[in-house]
Computed example of a mutant assay.
Amino acid sequence: MRSITTTRPLVALGVALGIAVGGVAAAGAATTATATTTAAAPAVRAVQNFGLSSAQAKNVQNWLKQNWGYNGSIDGQLGPESWKAFQRNLKEFWGYPGAIDGIPGTETVKALQRLLKDGGWGYTGAIDGIAGDGTRAAFRNFADGI
């Protein structure tokens, strides 16, 4: 028999995992999990256009296809394959230190901000890795000008 000090943390962990994975219904099922069972959410890689229209994102994809080994479809949605190609550019020229993983996280955004600032695309903000209004406006300038 488990003591209350062992069971209570497992139930709390199961509820938290259930909510994270699929909501309250899954939380009830997750409460029966043992300490060796883990719930893994599927890796979802979302499209991240950072304020670009579909037409602007297609411009970026065409540029990536011509210059950075992008071989996906020109669909106006900057998904993982678009961002992998962009990360190759950012790694070579703009100080991106991370893996070529297609995830436009903080380090990808910092390198993008350096490109937008030093490349003359109108970014005047801090290199902070936050894709705010200034980053998005400059990214649109970039997409329109390439």
Rank of each mutant, 00 (worst) to 15 (best):
I4C: 05
T6A: 08
R8V: 15
A12D: 08
G14M: 10
G14L: 11
I19M: 13
V21K: 01
G22L: 00
G22E: 01
A25K: 08
A26W: 12
A30E: 04
A30Y: 03
T31L: 01
T31P: 01
T31V: 12
A33F: 14
T34S: 14
T38E: 09
A40E: 12
P42Y: 01
A43W: 03
R45E: 10
R45Y: 13
R45V: 06
L52G: 11
S53G: 12
S53V: 12
S54R: 13
Q56I: 03
N59T: 14
V60N: 05
V60P: 07
W63M: 00
L64M: 14
L64G: 13
K65F: 10
K65P: 08
N67G: 15
N67M: 10
W68I: 06
W68N: 11
G69V: 06
G72S: 11
G72P: 08
G72E: 09
G72V: 07
S73A: 00
S73W: 00
D75L: 11
L78F: 05
G79F: 03
G79W: 04
E81S: 14
E81K: 07
K84R: 15
A85I: 00
N89W: 06
G95K: 00
Y96K: 00
Y96F: 00
P97Y: 03
I100N: 06
D101W: 01
G102K: 02
G102H: 01
G102C: 03
G102R: 03
G102A: 02
I103M: 06
P104R: 10
T106P: 10
T108G: 03
T108M: 05
T108L: 08
V109N: 02
K110H: 07
K110P: 10
K110G: 12
L112G: 11
Q113M: 02
L115A: 11
L115R: 14
K117S: 15
G119Q: 13
G119E: 12
G120N: 10
G120A: 13
G122L: 09
I127E: 05
D128L: 12
D128F: 08
I130N: 02
I130P: 01
A131R: 05
D133E: 09
R140E: 13
F142K: 08
F142C: 13
D144S: 15
D144Y: 04
I146S: 08
